[in-house]
Design a protein around this nucleic acid. Structure first.
Lengths: 239, 239
DNA sequence: GCGGGTCTGTCATCCTGCCGACAATCTGCT
DNA sequence: AGCAGATTGTCGGCAGGATGACAGACCCGC
């Protein structure tokens, strides 16, 4: 599944960790410990990172690329929780002995990941327990994100949710690529539908409306944000 | 808003904290510290605990009673995240300087709460930082809960969601009250609708179906679980 | 036991998004 | 150039839930 293109040097792994907001403030010695336990893997676009492996106890950091977090149903439907960019740490919930939920991870673009076995990670944290504080605060933030999503699904209208999602994706993609005045997202409408919990047809109609309003441009496999400010305005609208 | 029925003794406050799964394993000295910062308040059924106070930086522990966590929209709709019973710690996300989301808290039954100002709480945690570990793991669990909810809303059918919700409420209520063979919940259909994100009419029709199937009994202001096993079966069904 | 507030049962109507289908278009590869 | 696969544009029919309305039942306090 994963192809190790080349073994990264310890310094390269350190550099990646230093760029992560979570790890950046940590003492050098701890970063070195992390670098020591990190396993580098390269995943080409579309590859599964781990799917259907509820047992696997590894968190990972995105060194480069984009990773889709999703969950399938027996009926063949798929719900995409989000697409994450560089410097994010994922699967952190697997710190728990029995993770309360299991997601599938897939490389949405060519990606390089640093795998951190939770066993080794907790050992490092226990050695310098104030670091648990950072983990706790990170989890608070994550929890807030999912609650916001839950609220949007229950209280917000569909066009609003789409505006929020597009703005989020633009922000993540802005980190991954260079940011010009206009931002093009490689994003099939079906994918967007899976994030919003609706069908591609519904997405298509909505996108059309947004395009007519001059907010975005819709092309094959591509959505370009033309007016981010107006998008944010819709996203923030109170119903 | 809150009426302090009587000032609880330090030992009474300690006893409450000791019953919480989160705090129970903590050293005596820390529990004493917590008891020292805890402010006891009593809220009659229906009272707002804090609503529309995004600035307030206090977590709280439910000593007794039940607390509804909800969020309103400008359109007058309300989404109820859940109803929590004794020994739960709520508003923990306010440990963050800038909480990412704000919920309203209301006493669903007569309740006694221990308020813990986050400023004092973090001081205690920082003094014995391994305790942050427990907070981090708690947040992982909470995060998992909200993710599960999010998934149910996106992938599951409505009857399934209702089965899950009823089972959850029964579990919480089983802690609050005594558990006979049959469990009656004081639960207006509108309330259930607010938890599921649907109208009371839709809930009514569904409840009727469940009642016909012998799963529950529906009375005025009351839903009685008759066949918990069958309910769990629906909840666990894979679509 | 009376009255106001709350909750339930039920209906007809509307609307949003789903489903299935099909043609057209684009991309990447040979 | 040509082909296979993926993506888009679009339609009509359909279903589930929203909405608004109204009557009736229930509870609690006076």
């Amino acid at each position: 599944m994963a192809t190790r293109s080349h073994a990264w040097s310890r310094d390269e792994r350190l550099a990646v960790l230093r760029r992560c907001p979570l790890f950046a403030p940590w003492p050098e010695a701890r970063l070195a410990d992390l670098a020591a336990i990190a396993r580098v893997e390269h995943y080409p676009r579309g590859t599964e990172i781990y799917a259907h492996e509820p047992e696997r106890r590894e968190a990972f950091v995105i060194a480069s690329g984009e990773v889709e977090v999703s969950r399938g149903s027996a009926a063949g439907k798929k719900f995409v929780l989000g697409i994450n960019g560089p410097c994010e740490i994922l699967a952190i919930v697997r710190l728990l002995e029995a993770p309360p939920i299991h997601y599938d991870y897939r490389a949405y673009e060519d990606s390089v990941l640093l795998h951190l076995p939770t066993r080794d990670l907790t050992a490092i944290l226990d050695a310098d327990p104030i670091l648990w504080r950072d983990i706790a605060l990170l989890m608070c933030a994550r929890h807030g994100d999912s609650l916001r999503l839950l609220n949007d699904h229950n209280l917000g209208s569909l066009d609003q949710r789409m505006a929020v999602t597009l703005a989020d994706l633009a922000r993540i993609h802005g980190i991954a690529g260079e940011n010009g005045t206009e931002l093009g997202l490689r994003l099939p409408q079906e994918q967007l539908g899976a994030m919003l919990g609706v069908t591609r047809q519904s997405v298509n109609k909505l996108l059309r409306g947004f395009e007519d309003a001059g907010l975005i441009a819709v092309d094959y496999n591509r959505i370009t944000i033309r007016n981010p400010a107006a998008l944010d305005l819709i996203a923030a609208r109170q119903d």
